[in-house]
Design a protein around this nucleic acid. Structure first.
Length: 409
RNA sequence: GUGGCUAUAGUUUAAUGGUAAAACUCUGACCUGUGGCGUCAGAAACGAGAGUUCGAUUCUCUCUAGUCACC
């Protein structure tokens, strides 16, 4: 077994739990937030800085690394850990999300989270002729991608994705799936789900054959991904199907409406085998993290802290602020006095004022993105850590209430 | 000193005899398995004076400022 998951304590009256996930590169204390390092780098941060945010695990991306610098090259360097100089646990995403982001969503105003639960929009007719040419096209066998870097054509199958991920060498990898657009209708969601299920089995089969070919024992842990959009019947069917396969853990994928994401996660986690870890893919705003933890999610990853950090939108205990705003130009105080990160509570005499951070972003200085990413990652990672300890000492509900009250004040 | 040219938003540039467009900046909003990207909304200008005209930012003159050439 490549990983070992143990539940330490469960949250009474809900699906939540706190535990540990042991990997060949160290232990992850769950629930945990996974830092996103798409191209074998958490943008703007050195591995040491990543560590200083409290991060225990980094997620890289199969599709991006396959294109650049190529999985074979990463393998020749001894795998991702050595290549990027990160010694802790790692995961790779399968490239399934790029089926969505470079396919249905490409060039459109479609995001992973739908703002309004507008049925007319959610169940819109699948438009066959799109004005913007897609970079990804789906067939039963796999997905053909047109590289966004040089236009070259690449065909990714479940087998290919698993092969690439074995070459990259993360501790935990994902099955190849199709993340559907929230705008697809029921018929398409169903069709896509059946495809994702077939791909899950193929991913699993190829994973096992690669391990066998490699002499047996060592290999990454493989997570299967549950899809099904917003449809209760499809979500539950997917959880049953994927949960019944011999995966080491599970991902919950797809696009959601903010309002009903909790229901979808709950449907799924009530069905998935509880002794295996669950990863809610691509989710990471504070409210959503509480929702996920309560509903039995062990791992999260999200670009929000780093992407927002590079843009100047910073998390504080009193909500998000755009540090570029004029009101911070002469603000000598720390970003968030209640935060223990290296930006807000520097060890010795150094101090980063709101005014200085404001200046860095306005001047387009690189240090702004670095400090913002450090702070935001610390904030989100620490938030999930506090959720974990509040599960362990039985104060989760109080903590959630107090945090959200101040966060929304 | 003489002659030419120029003067439009904070900046750099458009257009037009019927009160003016854009980019950057500026004021905000947005970003959920990442193109350090980008999207959206908003604020903001005809150097001054006179003349021609129904009407002048536009044409004419004077002034002022800048710029180039010559002395």
């Amino acid at each position: 077994m490549a990983i070992k998951f143990q539940i330490e304590r469960e949250l009474s009256g809900s699906l939540g739990r706190a535990g540990t996930l042991e990997t060949p590169h160290g232990i992850i204390h769950t629930p945990a937030f996974v830092s996103v390092g798409t191209k074998a780098t958490v943008k703007a941060l050195t591995p040491e800085q990543i560590k200083n945010t409290g991060a225990e695990v980094v997620l890289a991306n199969t599709y991006h690394l396959y294109l650049e610098p190529g999985d074979e090259r990463v393998k020749s360097f001894g795998g991702l850990h050595k290549f990027m100089n990160w010694s802790g646990p790692m995961m790779t995403d399968s490239g399934g999300f790029q089926v969505f982001s470079l396919g249905a969503a490409y060039g459109k105003e479609l995001s992973k989270i739908t703002k309004i639960a507008d049925p007319s929009r959610m169940l819109a007719e699948r438009s066959l002729d799109s004005e913007v040419p897609r970079l990804a096209n789906i067939s039963a066998e796999g997905v053909s991608f047109r590289s966004h870097l040089d236009g070259s054509l690449h065909f990714i199958t479940p087998e290919k994705s698993i092969e690439i991920q074995h070459n990259l060498g993360a501790d935990m990898i994902f099955a190849f799936d199709e993340c559907t657009s929230p705008a697809e209708d029921f018929r398409y969601q169903k069709e896509a789900l059946e495809r994702t299920h077939r791909w899950a089995k193929r991913s699993l089969d190829h994973h096992h054959s690669l391990i066998r070919a490699n002499g047996g024992i060592r290999g990454p842990a493989l997570f299967g991904i549950v899809q099904g959009g917003r449809e209760e019947s499809l979500r539950k069917r997917s959880a049953e199907f994927i949960g019944g396969l011999d995966f080491d853990g599970f991902g919950i994928g797809g696009s959601f409406a903010k309002e009903d994401m909790d229901r979808a996660v709950k449907w799924v986690n009530e069905i998935l085998p509880k002794e295996k870890p669950r990863h809610l893919l691509g989710i990471g705003e504070p409210e959503d993290l509480f929702m996920g933890v309560e509903n039995g999610v062990d791992l999260f990853d999200c670009v929000a802290p780093t992407r927002n950090g590079r843009g100047g939108t910073l998390y504080t205990s009193k909500g998000k602020v755009n540090i570029r705003n004029a009101e911070f130009r002469e603000d000598t105080g720390p970003l968030d006095p209640d935060c223990g990160c290296p930006v807000c509570q520097p060890a010795r005499s150094t101090q980063y004022s709101r005014a200085y951070l404001c200046h860095l972003y306005r001047a387009h200085e690189m240090l702004g993105g670095t400090l913002g990413s450090i702070h935001n990652l610390y904030f989100i990672i620490n938030l999930v850590k506090r959720m974990r300890s509040s599960i362990l000492d039985g104060t989760f509900t109080d903590f959630k209430k107090a945090f959200l009250k101040e966060y929304h004040s």
